[in-house]
C-alpha cells in the first residue's frame, strides 16, 4: 500500500462527549489521598481515650472522608488549567473535558457541606468546626492562595492533611489536648519531605505548570537540605507522644526505629547532586518509604492503645 500525499487523509470520527460517569465523580475525590486521610483519622479515633459507638465512629470517619473528598473536588475545580499542563494530572476528569467545571465545584461544595453538617449533628460540633476549618484550609488557603504564590506552599498546606487524626480524636473526646496536637504536628512536619521528594523527580512537571515548588524556585540543593532538616525535626516530635505519656513503648520504639530510618534515607538525598536523565532512585525510595512510614507509625499508635487497653 502506497501513501499518496495528494489524497486527503481520512479524518478521524469526532469523539462524542459523554456526560460525566459516576467514576469521574469518584476520581474527583482523589481516592488514594483519601485512603491516607481515612487511615490517619481512624487512628486518631481509635487512639483517643474514651469510647464511641461503632455506628457513630463509622459516621465520623465517613464525614472525614467526605470532607477530604469535597476539598479534593474543589481543588481540582480550581486547578483544572494547571492539571492539564502536568503529565501526572492531565488524565483527571476536568482536564480531559469529561466533566464540566461547574459540576466539580457543586459536587465539592455539596460533599463539604454534607460532611460538616452530619459531623455536627451526629457526632460533635467542635469536630465539625475543625473539619470545616480543614476544608477551607485546603481548598482556599492552600489551593487558591498559597500554592500558586509561595515555595513554602507545601509547608503551610501540610496543615490541611494534618487535620484528620485531630478530628478523629475530637470526635471521641470532644476536646483538644496535647496528644491530638502532636499527631497534627507529626503529619505537618512529615508533609514537606514527603512532597519535596516527589517534587524532585517530577520537577519539570511543576516547572511547566508554573507552580513555585521549592525545587523549581530555590533549586535542588536547597530542597535537599530542607528535606533533611524536616526529617531531623520530625524525629523528636514523633517521640513526644511517648515522652509525655500519651503512648506506650510499642509506639515509642516503633517511632524511634521508623524515624531513624527516615533520616537515614533522607541523608543520601540531602548530599547528592543529580543531572539530566538521573533515575532519582534515592528520591523515589524516600517518597515510597514516607508513605509507608506514616501508615506504620499511626498503626503502631493504635496497636499501642489496644495493647494498653
Amino acid at each position: 500500500m502506497s501513501f499518496n500525499p495528494a489524497s486527503p487523509a481520512p479524518s478521524p470520527a469526532p469523539a462524542i462527549q459523554l456526560p460525566a460517569d459516576w467514576r469521574d465523580f469518584v476520581a474527583l475525590t482523589k481516592p488514594r489521598v483519601m485512603s491516607l486521610v481515612v487511615f490517619t483519622g481512624l487512628c486518631g479515633l481509635l487512639a483517643a481515650p474514651g469510647h464511641i459507638h461503632p455506628v457513630l465512629g463509622f459516621a465520623a470517619i465517613l464525614c472525614i472522608a467526605l470532607g477530604a473528598g469535597g476539598a479534593a473536588a474543589l481543588n481540582q475545580w480550581w486547578e483544572a488549567d494547571i492539571d492539564a499542563l502536568m503529565k501526572r494530572t492531565a488524565k483527571r476528569p476536568l482536564p480531559t473535558g469529561r466533566m464540566a467545571r461547574s459540576d466539580a465545584r457543586d459536587f465539592g461544595i455539596a460533599l463539604s457541606c454534607a460532611s460538616v453538617g452530619i459531623m455536627g449533628l451526629a457526632i460533635h460540633w467542635l469536630a465539625a468546626i475543625v473539619l470545616a476549618l480543614s476544608i477551607v484550609y485546603y481548598a482556599v488557603v492552600y489551593t487558591i492562595w498559597l500554592k500558586p504564590r509561595t515555595p513554602q506552599n507545601i509547608v503551610i498546606g501540610g496543615g490541611a492533611g494534618a487535620f484528620p487524626p485531630l478530628i478523629g480524636w475530637i470526635a471521641v473526646t470532644g476536646e483538644i489536648t496535647a496528644m491530638p496536637v502532636l499527631l497534627f504536628a507529626i503529619i505537618f512536619l512529615w508533609t514537606p519531605p514527603h512532597f519535596w521528594a516527589l517534587a524532585l523527580f517530577v520537577r519539570t512537571d511543576y516547572a511547566n505548570a508554573g507552580i513555585p515548588m521549592l525545587p523549581v524556585v530555590a533549586g535542588q540543593a536547597a530542597t535537599r537540605r530542607q528535606i533533611l532538616i524536616y526529617s531531623l525535626v520530625l524525629l523528636p516530635v514523633t517521640l513526644a507522644p511517648w515522652a509525655i505519656g500519651g503512648a506506650g513503648a510499642i509506639y515509642g520504639v516503633s517511632a524511634l526505629a521508623l524515624s531513624a530510618l527516615f533520616v537515614a534515607l533522607a541523608l543520601p538525598v540531602a548530599f547528592r547532586r543529580s543531572g539530566e536523565g538521573d533515575p532519582m532512585r534515592q528520591e523515589k525510595r524516600l517518597f515510597g518509604y514516607s508513605v509507608l512510614y506514616l501508615f506504620v507509625l499511626f498503626g503502631a499508635l493504635v496497636a499501642d492503645r489496644l495493647v494498653l487497653a
Binding site: I16, L18, P19, A20, D21, W22
Partner: peptide
C-alpha cells in the same frame, strides 16, 4: 452510550 452513562449515574 449517553443513556447508559446517565442510567449508571442515576443508579
Amino acid at each position: 452510550a449517553i443513556a447508559r452513562t446517565r442510567r449508571n449515574r442515576n443508579r
